[in-house]
Design a protein around this nucleic acid. Structure first.
Length: 650
RNA sequence: GCCGGCUUAGCACAGUGGUAGUGCAACGGUUUUGUAAACCGUAGGUCGGGGGUUCGAAUCCCUCAGCCGGCACCA
């Protein structure tokens, strides 16, 4: 006779085997109605699951993250059901839950159109309205393979065929429709109410571009209409942060057809770019890096030796010149830095040598990969290569890791994850060397006290890497920094140093980037801040404006004064109402709007308004300058707005 | 690169076979103005490029390019 222990510790005894749904009903009619599934001894099960032994059970409802996941999974089934009713010869493949929703891939003779999508969504609502009971049955693997082959579901048959023989397969469905699935699912289709189909797209079968392309339908599903609406609003908000849109609105940069994937930086955007470089230069110089600069165009043979041609030849730009030689535009800076290292005979006493370069690289990325500043064909890396002895790897890696994390903090990114990527299938160097490199990097990560997650097979072709992934204001992850241990390239390109033993040795090379790509990092910053860049980065930090032309002279004087203190300031002396000017510069996300009327001229002050719309009242010019400079120098840790507000309230 | 969609004035968009439009911006004028849009007027387009169908193409067809959403790729 089963004794069921509920999450609050209470126990209920039953005199016969009992289903999850019955337990829920025994607790209360409200819960019976809300039950989507059960968690039986930690495992999710259907509400129809019968329990005939003592167990711990919690009832899963749509308030649970597990419940939402089940809703999404069942909605994916609902989608497949609707598609097969409307398009009987469409074959089902896979339909997993993803963040905020689900997708389902179908094999069909033609792509689905947006009209099809509307029709499918309508049919889904109809099936939901019928509140069909979701049923489950189990059959042996081989029988399941035969069954799916018989009904013309060849992809499903292939998937099941990969499951070990002898195992049983569960089938879930509603009405006449059925699909292979591990479950669990909601008890009936009526539980699926708040969903929306989002888009159709092509996707390769089994994620391999050599396979045929399937039709993927993406959808979102939520516990209720309110959540769905909130999600759609969130998408709209994210769209407003799009760096491509803000880049145009703020006149930062543009892209055009003649140069796909290459950026035309406008004065304001380039100011931001230069701020990042100045900042990075300061930080890395303090950390013992020396800046170098190496050619953008070098003989193709160098890239054959390095192994880049073999691995990435298809993605490199080659030049045609009147001479007989073929040159390549550099896709990376490492071989250039190795050439600098190789000049003269290096001694172990010089190591570690740390060469840094703001190197502009060109990569012929697949056309479909290009995306604003985030994925371009010409970009600037804040690249560096550390040449060291094997003994120095750990210490240098720890220092680089700390530098990277410190830099992210200055930009307001506190939430950073680190991935460890080990040897890829396509690589150079022996397994022994890879064993050594991976062990060295693992040890370095441990010494730095950081936690990493494994990213199997994702290392560079010459070495394993740590990837620094930062999370932005709306929860998206961006891979930026990287630290790679390389036992291969220095040897391939003939770099040596003389050791303590007077013998020649090959140095180990550490590759590191912190922003990764300056272009991309700017894109991330724009989206993270929705264009409201911190004052220390803003291309224009303040605009001085008068109310009438009586204040013109004073405005110019104030601006000059601020400019002399290093503030990036503009004046707006147009013959317009102050409200109009405020609106324009607020839209341009200028941090501080400084207004001068007759009162301010007389008192040598400025009325200060923030882009957030806050009126900070009048401040004396000297005081304002000091506060502004503090905010910039502290990189936003001393906030003008907060300091003024605090003082006013004190 | 693959699948689908899109490309009309500086920007956002309307126009589905019969004389290319609206709003904002721009330019000219009037308004001297106190914190998110003053008013009036003017100009601006080989409708992404090329080819075809048609008496006639922004509109239909072919092709190339770019962009957008996915997939694949990402040293």
């Amino acid at each position: 006779m089963p004794v069921i222990t509920l999450p609050d510790g209470s126990q209920r005894q039953f005199d016969r085997p009992i289903s999850v749904a019955e337990v829920a009903a025994n607790i209360g009619p409200g819960l019976a109605k809300a039950a989507l599934a059960g968690k039986l001894d930690g495992i999710l099960v259907d509400t129809s699951t019968v329990i005939d032994y003592d167990a711990k059970l919690s009832i899963v409802t749509d308030k649970d993250p597990d419940g939402l996941e089940i809703i999404r999974h069942s909605t994916a089934h609902l989608l497949a059901n609707a598609v097969q009713e409307l398009f009987p010869d469409a074959q089902v493949t896979i339909g997993p839950v993803i963040e905020d929703g689900f997708y389902y891939d179908f094999a069909y003779k033609r792509p689905f159109s947006t009209e099809d999508l509307a029709a499918i969504e309508k049919r889904m609502a109809e099936i939901s309205a019928k509140d069909l009971k979701v049923h489950r049955r189990v059959m042996p693997r081989d029988e399941a393979v035969a069954h799916f082959k018989k009904i013309g579901e060849h992809y499903k048959a292939e998937i099941i065929g990969a499951i070990p023989a002898g195992e049983s397969i569960s089938l879930y469905g509603q009405g006449d429709w059925e699909d292979l699935c591990r479950g669990p699912h909601v008890p009936s289709t009526g539980k699926l109410k708040a969903f929306k189909l989002m888009k159709v797209a092509g996707a390769y079968w089994r994620g391999d571009s050599r396979n045929e392309m399937l039709q993927r339908i993406y959808g979102t599903a939520w516990a209720n209409e309110k959540q769905l609406k909130e999600y759609l609003t969130r998408l709209e908000e994210a769209e407003k942060r799009d760096h491509r849109r803000i880049g145009r609105e703020l006149d930062l940069f543009h892209l055009q057809e003649e140069a796909p994937g290459a950026v035309f930086w406008h004065p304001k955007g380039w100011t931001l770019f230069q701020q990042l470089i100045a900042y990075m230069r300061e930080r890395q110089t303090a950390a013992g890096f020396q800046e170098v600069n190496t050619p953008e165009v070098m003989d193709r043979e160098l890239w054959v030796k390095s192994g880049h041609i073999a691995t990435f030849g298809e993605n490199m730009y080659l030049t045609q010149t009147p001479d007989e030689r073929t040159y390549a535009l550099k896709p990376m800076n490492c071989p250039g830095h190795i050439q600098v290292f190789k000049q003269g005979l290096r001694s172990y006493r010089e190591l570690p040598l740390r060469f840094a370069e703001f190197g502009k690289v060109h990569r012929y990325e697949p056309s479909g990969a290009l995306h604003g500043l985030m994925r371009v064909r010409a970009f600037t890396q804040d690249d560096a290569h550390l040449f060291c002895t094997p003994d120095q790897i750990t210490e240098e890696s720890v220092k680089v890791t700390q530098l990277i994390l410190g830099i992210y903090r200055d930009f307001g990114f506190e939430d950073v994850r680190i991935k460890f990527s080990d040897r890829p299938a396509k690589r150079v160097g022996s397994d022994e060397i890879w064993d050594q490199a991976e062990a060295a990097l693992r040890q370095a990560a441990a010494a730095a006290g950081i936690e990493t997650t494994l990213n199997p097979g994702e290392g560079a072709f010459y070495g394993p890497k740590l990837e620094f992934v930062l999370r932005d204001a709306i929860g998206r992850d961006w891979q930026c920094g990287t630290l790679q241990v390389d036992f291969n390239l220095p040897g391939r390109l003939g770099a040596v140093y003389v050791g303590e033993d007077s013998q020649k040795h090959t140095p180990v090379m550490l590759h590191r980037a912190m922003f990764g790509s300056l272009e991309r990092f700017i894109g991330i910053l724009i989206e993270h801040h929705a264009g409201k860049l911190p004052t220390w980065l803003a291309p224009v930090q303040a605009v001085v404006m008068g109310i009438t032309d009586r204040q013109d002279k004073y405005c110019l004087e104030v601006a000059e004064n601020l400019r002399n203190q290093g503030v990036r300031v503009e004046t707006d002396l147009r013959y317009e109402k102050v409200g109009f000017k405020i609106r324009e510069h607020t839209i341009k996300r200028v941090p501080f709007l400084l207004v001068a009327g007759d009162r301010e001229v007389e008192g040598r002050t400025l009325a200060v308004r923030t882009r957030g719309g806050k009126d900070l009242g009048s401040l004396e010019l000297v005081e304002l300058t000091a506060l502004l400079c503090d905010e910039v120098a502290s990189r936003g840790r001393l906030v003008l707005e907060d300091r003024v507000s605090q003082r006013r309230s004190a």
